[in-house]
Design a protein around this nucleic acid. Structure first.
Ligand code: ZN
Length: 136
DNA sequence: CGTCAAGGCCAG
DNA sequence: CTGGCCTTGACG
């Protein structure tokens, strides 16, 4: 089948995504980046942006590795999905509110706040990492 | 059995 | 470090 590439677009760089990754629309690049950042915990960012960088293109996204990570969480990607395919956007156990996924509902804000909370934790961890990652 | 998503490894 | 392709696993 000539699978039409027009359907999924990366919410981070607007690149063509072949599928949804970690609960968020992302291209392989962003997915791999996210996974390596979370799963591996490696990568030296060494960038202290306030998160006001405008990541909209395939070029601006690579300028700020942290901003990309920031946007990744905002588009719906969650670190909990890394190393676990059974953690994406699914009806989380415990929430039996009729029908409806965790998203697109009243708890949408909850998800957004959760992502933002992760950002604070991530930024803090990144800050310590970049400070300690200083060579000599 | 088929499809979708994640993980791993490779190349630039 | 970034982007991509391939492979494997799980779920439907
Ligand atoms: Zn992307």
């Amino acid at each position: 089948m000539e699978s039409p590439p027009s359907l999924l677009y990366c919410g981070v760089c607007s690149d063509t995504a072949d599928a949804v990754h970690f609960g968020g629309l992302s291209c392989r690049a962003c997915a791999a980046f996210f996974r390596r950042k979370v799963a591996g915990g490696k990568m030296s960012i060494g960038r202290r942006c306030n998160g006001n960088c405008k990541l909209d293109t395939v070029v601006s996204r690579r300028l700020c590795p942290f901003c990309r990570y920031d946007k990744c969480l905002r588009i719906g990607m969650k670190t909990t999905a890394v190393l676990s395919r059974l953690a994406t956007v699914k009806t989380e156990p415990g929430e039996g509110t009729s029908s409806g996924s965790g998203w697109a509902m009243g708890n949408l804000l909850e998800q957004m706040k959760e992502a933002h909370r992760n950002l604070e934790n991530a930024r803090r961890g990144e800050f310590m990492n970049e400070v300690r990652a200083l060579p000599v």
